[in-house]
Amino acid sequence: MSDPMTTLTTAQAARAEAARGTGPAPIAAGMDVEHLSAFYGRFQALDDITFPIHPGAVTAVIGPSGCGKSTFIRCLNRLHELTPGARVTGSVRLEGIEIYQPGIDPARVRQLIGMVFQKPNPFPTLSIYDNVLSGVRLHRPRLSRAEADEIVERSLRAAALWDEVKDKLKAPGTSLSGGQQQRLCIARALAVEPLVLLMDEPTSALDPIATYRIEELIWELKQRYTIVIVTHNMQQAARIADYVAFLLAGEERTGRLIEFDTAQRIFTNPKRKETEDYITGKIG
């Protein structure tokens, strides 16, 4: 993570921007999850999850359907609590700062920790251009035309979508193909300049080629962002992840962390029998 090219000037520039409230260029930031439990009413969906999310790396969360992967990732940006009756205990820290402590604004948490969902969900009433800006406009209501153009181009380029849509930015976001829509959603998340990007099975609704393009994109993005991705596809996890967390739910359907390690060790030399059974397809 320590970058030899780091210069004080770029860091200072980022901080100067931050001080102006215009947001910095994303700087990969780490997270720590400790003793995290999540509930839906009285049902406990997750129990005592603890593992670190390393900065500038891809962490994959794997496990059979219903083991609580989505619930877990939604706890990381405080989306879980929006479900009526849902509750979280334990600790999630971003850069050492507890995001569940009183006095933290959940809207700001979600600004710094972006999210992409399983089904592409561009806003149907907005053009491609306005979809990209939809999040930015929440935080910066007075955006000049030039700034807006620049953010749209930069975000669409970062999401590897620019060349395909640059001639039809005014077309509705929903007119794109599924894979393009998903990259539009990634661009929309990146435009807000988050530190961490959460992705919940971002390719499960896409065909193999679109999937491949998104995976390629994730490779590029991890240069600058910390990425947490939920996937039920072992090959995908093996291709893109640096770290892997394996969750499993028992009889009572409560998800627990079975093993957390580097992707290499999980896929070549797992310590736990359950992990091995799962990655070799014996369970799930």
């Binding site: 320590s2 970058d3 260029a25 700001r108 600004q111």
Partner: peptide
């Protein structure tokens, strides 16, 4: 605003922490 994407930067962590805290609160 810079036009090209920022390179990966690790700002001195104490500043970054303060910055994140400032936004989050």
């Amino acid at each position: 605003m810079t036009t090209e994407p920022m390179p990966a930067v690790e700002a001195p962590s104490i500043d970054r922490r303060a910055w994140v805290e400032r936004i989050l609160t």
